[in-house]
Design a protein around this nucleic acid. Structure first.
Lengths: 192, 192, 192, 192
DNA sequence: TAATAACCGAGACGGTACGTCTCGTCTTAGG
DNA sequence: CCTAAGACGAGACGTACCGTCTCGGTTATTA
């Protein structure tokens, strides 16, 4: 009997996630208190725990909402331009306060939370990587890259420095970074 | 009067750090409980807090011990070989169970623990980056790289894909990665 | 418009009270959960709250049903026999499992539930005491008791030991008790 | 290892019980909140739960403290006077606000809490009943009572009306009650 | 040698967040 | 307008962990 009883209140769904994201952005994932989420959302704690089995799961879902963005494959005719568009989009996204604040905790969570790992890897990364893959394949056709290009590795090179700065060195994510990475890719993987 | 009273027990020092590292490796930094460290080390909690002002500080110190490795600048005569030596060393280190297990939590901690951030960035990264910098400078002298090479960026490219795999995609850290990164660097930053 | 819409289901009325009594007998009034009553009665919670404003009121009503017994004034011609009949009836009633199980909780509830207190005192005790009063008055007429007999006090003496055993000492309620109490009354209140 | 570690703080012991008793007297046993006890006692909740496994157990202990009174056997030479002294003492005690407020909940608890039942029956009632038993035995010697007097029953008659009023009818506990009960006992159990 | 001072393991302390539970109300779809 | 099912806001429950403090006892250096 799936549809019996009072249905879940969609406004509560939204209020909970919104409050959680706000609080995470304000004080960090670490300092997130379920009681605070409930209070800000104007909701009982049970209403949260009916939706998420634990605080971790709430964080997962909130992050899921945060990173759930449609990505479209650019097609300017120029491989360099297309890569730059995608890199700038990524730099812009991870440069946002909320994403930047939350990401370290997410990464930590990834290592012990299979569910979150699946969500992030399959739901988010896969999409971005697929878009980039198309661009790389077009690049190969155009003769911008040599034919043995290891696309997986190329993707790691695009994303790696960005995450390294975000998570480890705390150096700025800016347009210069996007350009430098794309330049390196164009040169380093050019046909011999 | 600095030397009055019973001196600290060095065995306690060691037992605390060892227990902390073991527990971090077993269950993650997140699940580390001071009570558990005390119990495993056969030590009272006060004995821990006499040495470290907080749990965070204990983690910092334990991680410090873990990553405190002398690094020597290779000088084989070949820039590629030297870079490869350093990359392989890094791949080997982060491929170790303990380092790999602990790193995501460290990264999380970095974002809100200034002290740990300083320790990791100044005490550890700085050393490795200095070694790499020497190799890059020699490479420029030798004519392997163009003279405007942005060494900071080159370092990000070396480390980025490694951390990206370690923290985000969970793809393997292997020799192929080391070679691919070094190859890319050699090609991408070659003189025009 | 009193008769519009679907009429209340009488089976629900009965199921609710029956389930409440069963659960009270099984686990005590204390452990009674409205959700459990609803589940056992196969009824929604709202159906209960439409009938009883609160859990307390449900308990009141359930107990009311339990103790709602017609009492008839015995008239054997012998005061001792009449008192004995009434005492035996009481001993039999409070010896019943359900009544005995529920009574301590009822007593607790009496002290803070005015409504229940009224129901029990006016609806139930009053009836029994009235019956006994008649017997005592006949006894005075017959010359079995002195004329200054404080009937209120006599009633307390009849009921007191019974409740004391039931609630405090957990000693058995048996025929010997009934006889001893009646004997004491007959002697202690005999004319001088 | 019984004496290792920091010993329990006796002031906390006292503060907890005192606060619990105060709150029980103010609002009833029913409305007692562990958080309130902790707050009023200036104590953490864990400090309460270290001493008492549950709220019920705290209530038990608090009540134990409340009813833990030395009782001495009066010996005036007159059986009536001795009984009256003991009855007045009881009437005075149960007339106190705290005892009267708490008793219904205690009685309810007795029926499902073996530990409390033992405490109350063996620790408290037994003492009072023993004192009364001495008085009755002296009375038999003096010829105030017939020799077949069932002392157990006599005790039930002394205590019964008192508890009946306290728990059921809410009629006053006063000196008149004490006197009436003693009078009844003296007459009803007089030698034939 | 005795006193002094800081150490030691054990574990209680006040505080705070957790995740669970129950209350009495409210909201669905359906009879 | 009733019904069964079950979600809702509120708030107490008992647990767990933090960082501090207290106990009896130990181990050095200083007097």
């Amino acid at each position: 009997m799936p549809d019996r009883g009072r249905p879940r209140d969609v406004r509560a769904d939204r209020a909970i996630l919104a409050s959680a994201l706000e609080l995470m952005a304000e004080q960090g994932v670490h300092a997130l208190r379920i009681d605070d989420v409930a209070a800000r959302a104007g909701v009982g704690k049970a209403t949260i725990y009916r939706r998420y089995r634990s605080k971790d799961e709430l964080v997962v879902e909130a992050v899921g909402k945060l990173i759930d963005r449609e990505i479209e494959v650019p097609d300017s005719g120029s491989t360099r331009t297309d890569l730059l568009v995608l890199m700038r989009e990524a730099v812009g996204f991870y440069g946002e306060t909320l994403a930047a604040t939350v990401m370290p905790s997410i990464v930590d969570e990834l290592s012990r939370n299979e569910e979150l790992a699946a969500l992030v890897r399959d739901g988010y990364l896969k999409g971005r990587r697929a878009a980039l893959q198309v661009v790389f394949e077009r690049g190969i056709e155009r003769g911008d890259f040599h034919r043995e290009l290891d696309i997986e590795f190329a993707l790691d090179v695009l994303a790696g420095p960005l995450f390294y700065r975000l998570l480890v060195t705390a150096d700025p994510l800016d347009d210069a970074l996007a350009q430098a990475v794309v330049d390196l890719i164009m040169r380093g993987f050019a046909p011999t």
